[in-house]
Write a protein that binds this DNA or RNA. Structure first.
Length: 418
DNA sequence: TCTGGGGTCCTAGGACCC
DNA sequence: TCTGGGGTCCTAGGACCC
């Protein structure tokens, strides 16, 4: 029998912002951007939630529901910093910690009773330690499966502990909305409602064969989940440490849709640089590069290309992305969002012949020098996009009635802070 | 209401190989 | 020539999570 903890930080982004600006405490706060910006709510304080504001809601909607709310830009580096502190606290309780995202983690505390005592007292001590070293509240779910532990931590919010005893899983889940099951979103909820399924108990009462016939493997996994089992995909394997990313991507939504090729291609250059840089930081090569295009009407396409080798170079990624862009963009279309995505990631070492190796090492040295320069003098100091702008200027000269000049602040910058 | 950004996992069809 | 079947890779899209 296993003992899993799911630890979930309470209103994490809002709480971190309150540490930096205590005047926010107790007020309706919305993290994610300004009230009139394109974008959605990343997190809302409990005071703001009373007005119906919740995460993923458009900022403008949040403003309409709660005009007196304080709108705060997100600070990803702050959250990563505090996420690290959270991780250290958890690590001091168990070597087996999986950060599932910046603000939540799974721990395997099986067989630690001699060290920590029974689960509830371990949880209370974890609460205290967390408060002491991070000044943040968390909620803790305890169960024999990770899925139930996660649902339990949600039910324990805010600042609570909930232990679902082994054997009690189905009874605990039965009265909850199916939406509470991790993996059941809007679409699945709608599908299930068509069969009269609203609560997890309704789901557990359905015939497994029926679910398999209509939903395939996913149906079987659902049946298991409704009974409290770690079924399917998400929860396979041990709680441990494989933190190497499977994909790296950056995307950017324009404040106003644009059809200007100059702006679009220099944005792609910038995004390619950001992706390449993250690849180098992780010491990874990507074999597949994917372009994402979202048009004004919100319709979205992706187009991918796989190399026969891996790469982590700005130029190589950008050239491929630009080729995909030129080949696939609807002529003269107005565009809302661009994205660059890298997958098929492999450790950078050991797949090249000698000749390539010398070349690549030379490149790698050059690029890490570029990275250092960018650290010192800012992202704009060295840029493919700048070269691109130069070329476009030439074209403007050839054609005086041509493209408008480049304006600062229209292309994305890493992190959005610092 | 007018819809972010960073991820993971899954499905389905077609190419290609044996 | 009138037609199988499995395995794997690639691409596109979509559900879902925080």
């Amino acid at each position: 029998m296993k003992t899993y903890f799911h630890v979930d930080m309470d209103a994490f982004f809002v709480s971190v912002e309150e540490l930096f600006d205590p005047s926010l405490i107790g007020k309706p706060v919305v993290v994610g951007g300004q009230a009139n910006q394109r974008g959605v709510v990343s997190a809302a304080s409990y005071a703001a939630r009373k007005f119906g504001v919740h995460s993923a809601m458009p900022l403008r909607t949040a403003h309409r529901l709660c005009p007196q709310a304080i709108f705060v830009d997100g600070h990803p580096t702050r959250y990563r910093e505090y996420s690290g502190k959270v991780y250290q606290v958890l690590k001091s309780f168990s070597p087996q910690v999986d950060m599932a995202s910046v603000d939540e983690a799974y721990m395997d505390l099986t067989g630690t009773e001699r060290l920590h005592g029974p689960p509830l007292s371990a949880a209370h001590r974890l609460h205290d330690a967390m408060k002491r070293s991070t000044a943040l509240n968390c909620s803790i779910g305890i169960a024999a499966s990770r899925m139930v532990a996660k649902v339990a931590s949600d039910q324990a919010k805010p600042n609570g502990v909930l232990w679902v005893l082994p054997g009690e899983e189905a009874r605990f889940l039965a009265p909850l909305d199916v939406r509470k099951i991790p993996g059941v979103g809007k679409v699945t909820e709608k599908n299930l409602q068509a069969w009269g399924v609203r609560k997890v108990g309704d789901l557990a009462a359905l015939d497994e064969d029926f679910l398999r016939q209509h939903l395939g493997q996913w149906g079987l996994a659902l049946a298991g989940k409704s009974r409290g089992m770690d079924a399917g995909g998400w929860f396979d394997g041990e709680v441990g440490d494989d933190n190497t990313p499977k994909s790296i991507s950056h995307e950017f939504t324009f404040n106003e849709d644009t059809a200007d090729s100059d702006t679009l291609e220099s944005t792609l250059a910038r995004l390619s640089e950001m992706v390449a840089r993250r690849l180098r930081e992780h010491d990874l090569h990507a074999r597949t590069i994917q372009l994402k295009l979202r048009y004004s009407d919100f319709s979205t396409i992706t187009r991918a290309h796989s190399f026969d080798h891996g790469t982590q170079l700005d130029t190589e990624i950008f050239q491929q992305i630009r080729a995909l862009f030129r080949a696939n963009r609807k002529a003269n279309s107005t565009i809302r969002l661009l994205g660059v995505h890298a997958s098929g990631l492999k450790p950078a070492e050991g797949q090249l012949n000698m000749l390539d190796e010398t070349n690549t090492n030379r490149w790698r040295k050059a690029m890490s020098a570029v990275d250092r320069l960018r650290d010192k003098f800012g992202e704009d100091s060295v840029s493919l996009a700048m070269g691109l702008r130069g070329r476009f200027r030439e074209r403007v000269h050839e054609n005086p009635a041509g493209l408008p000049g480049k304006t600062a602040g229209k292309t994305p910058r890493e992190g959005g802070e610092r």
